[in-house]
Amino acid sequence: MSEQDNSMTNSALNVLNRTRIVMVHTSHSGNIGSAARAMKTMGLHHLVLVEPKQFPSEEATALSSGATDILERAVVTDTLEEAVADCDFVIGASARSRNLPWPLVNPREMATKVLALPEDAKVALVVGRERSGLTNEELARCHVHVNIPANPDYSSLNVASAVQVLCYELRMSAIASQEQEKPEWGVEWDQPLAKGKQLEGLFDHWEKVLVDIEFLDPNNPRHLMTKLRRFVLRALPDEVEANILRGMLSHIDKKLRRN
Score class of each variant (00 low, 15 high):
R37Q: 03
M248H: 13
E3V: 11
E3Q: 13
I175V: 13
E138A: 04
A38R: 06
R129A: 02
H45R: 06
L256F: 01
T112S: 11
E119N: 06
D190N: 15
L47E: 03
P183F: 14
Q164A: 13
A242T: 15
V240C: 07
A116H: 05
K195G: 02
K208P: 00
C167F: 01
R73P: 00
T61C: 01
L125G: 00
C142T: 09
A124F: 04
P221L: 05
I244C: 09
L49N: 10
E130Q: 02
L47Q: 04
M172W: 00
R246I: 12
G186S: 08
C87L: 11
V76P: 05
A111N: 11
P149S: 14
L202R: 05
N259Y: 11
K122N: 08
C87G: 08
E72G: 03
M1N: 11
G43L: 03
E82H: 15
G66E: 02
E184F: 01
V24D: 13
D212P: 01
L16Q: 05
R141E: 05
E179W: 00
M225A: 05
G66W: 01
S97V: 13
L44S: 00
S155A: 15
M225P: 03
R129Q: 07
A74S: 07
E207L: 04
P192W: 12
S132F: 14
L139S: 05
A174N: 08
A83N: 08
L256Q: 09
H25T: 12
